[in-house]
C-alpha cells in the first residue's frame, strides 16, 4: 500500500465489483419474471394442442369425459369447480369477516393474539391432512344425508365445499382483519359520536370502508379454492358429471392427479389442456385481485 493512494484506481476496482454485484442481483430479480414467462409459455405449449385437436368449444362445453373413447369434454369439471368455489366462498366469506371483526374490534386483552396463532396454524395444515380429515370425519356425516336422500354413499360436492371453506378461511380472516384495522379511527369516532352502537359503527361504517380489502381477501380465497387439488381429490368422489350438492363431482384440479399416472398420448395432453384452462382461470382471478388492490390504493390516497 502506497502512502498516497490514487483515488482513481481504487474507485475503478470498486466500481467493477459493484457492477458485477449489481448485475448478479438484477439476474436474481429477473428470475421471477423468467419463471412466469416460462410457465405461461409451457402451459400454452402443452395444453394448446389438445384444445386445437378436440376443438375449443367441444373441449370446454362437452359434457362427456371419457378418455378411453376419445371424448374430452370438461364442462362438468368447469361447472363443478365454479360451484365448489362459490359454495366455499358463501360459507367462508361471512364467517371470515365476522371472525375478523371479532379479532380487530371486539376481542379483549390477549385473546386476539391467541386466536390469530390458531388461525395461522389452520393456514399451515397441509392440504392432504385436510383431505384425510374430510374423508374420515366429514364423509360419514354426509353418507347419512345421502342415505336419507336415497342416494348412494360417495364423495360429494358438499364435502368438497366444506373442506374448501375451512381451507380458505384463514386467508379471508387475515386479509379482512388487516383491512378492518386500516380503517381510519376518525370514521369510527364520528359514527360513535352520532350515537351509533359499537356494532352499528362496525357494520355501517367500518366494514363498508374496508370493502376493497375484504374483496381482495375474497379474490385470494377464490384463487386458493379454484387451485386446490389434493384435499378435494380425497373427498369429492370424482365422477365427471354435472354438479349436484350430494352427488360426486370432479373439479378441474382433481382430474390431473387422478389420471396422471395412467394417462398417455392424447389423454395426457387433455390433462395438460385442463391445466391450461385452470391457468387461464387463475390469471383472470389474479387480474381481478390487482384491479381491486389498485382501486383500493387509489381510494386511500
Amino acid at each position: 500500500m502506497t502512502e498516497k493512494q490514487s483515488i482513481i484506481s481504487t474507485r475503478r476496482s470498486k466500481l467493477t465489483l459493484e457492477a458485477v454485484m449489481s448485475a448478479a442481483f438484477l439476474l436474481c430479480g429477473l428470475a421471477a419474471v423468467v419463471s412466469v414467462l416460462f410457465i405461461s409459455v409451457y402451459m400454452v405449449a402443452s395444453g394448446g394442442p389438445v384444445i386445437a385437436k378436440v376443438g375449443i368449444l367441444k373441449f370446454l362445453l362437452g359434457r362427456v369425459w371419457n378418455p378411453g373413447n376419445g371424448q374430452f369434454g370438461i364442462l362438468p369439471m368447469i361447472l363443478s369447480s365454479i360451484f365448489a368455489t362459490a359454495g366455499a366462498i358463501l360459507i367462508a366469506l361471512p364467517t371470515g369477516v365476522l371472525v375478523a371483526v371479532f379479532l380487530s374490534k371486539l376481542a379483549p386483552g390477549k385473546l386476539p393474539g391467541a386466536l390469530r396463532a390458531l388461525i395461522d396454524l389452520l393456514a399451515g395444515i397441509p392440504s392432504v391432512v385436510y383431505g384425510l380429515l374430510g374423508a374420515i370425519l366429514l364423509a360419514p356425516l354426509i353418507f347419512k344425508l345421502q342415505t336419507w336422500a336415497g342416494l348412494p354413499q360417495s364423495g360429494s360436492l358438499l364435502a368438497a365445499i366444506s373442506v374448501l371453506s375451512i381451507m380458505i378461511l384463514p386467508t379471508i380472516i387475515t386479509v379482512s382483519e388487516t383491512a378492518l384495522r386500516a380503517v381510519p379511527k376518525q370514521y369510527e369516532d364520528a359514527a360513535l359520536a352520532l350515537g351509533s352502537t359499537r356494532l352499528q359503527c362496525i357494520f355501517r361504517v367500518t366494514i363498508p370502508a374496508a370493502k376493497s380489502g375484504i374483496a381482495a381477501g375474497m379474490a385470494l380465497g377464490v384463487g386458493r379454492a379454484v387451485g386446490e387439488a389434493m384435499a378435494v381429490t380425497m373427498v369429492a368422489g370424482n365422477a365427471a358429471i354435472l354438479p349436484e350438492l350430494l352427488k360426486p363431482v370432479r373439479l378441474l384440479t382433481t382430474s390431473i392427479p387422478l389420471e396422471w399416472a395412467y394417462s398417455s398420448g392424447l389423454h395426457r395432453e387433455a390433462l395438460y389442456g385442463i391445466g391450461l384452462v385452470l391457468f387461464v382461470f387463475i390469471m383472470i382471478i389474479n387480474a381481478a385481485l390487482s384491479a381491486i388492490l389498485k382501486k383500493g390504493g387509489a381510494h386511500n390516497a
Binding site: I39, R224, G227, I256, P257, G275
Partner: peptide, 10 residues
C-alpha cells in the same frame, strides 16, 4: 397465485 397442481404440470 399459481396453484401447486399447475406447478406440477409445468
Amino acid at each position: 397465485g399459481i396453484p401447486s397442481i399447475l406447478y406440477g404440470v409445468f
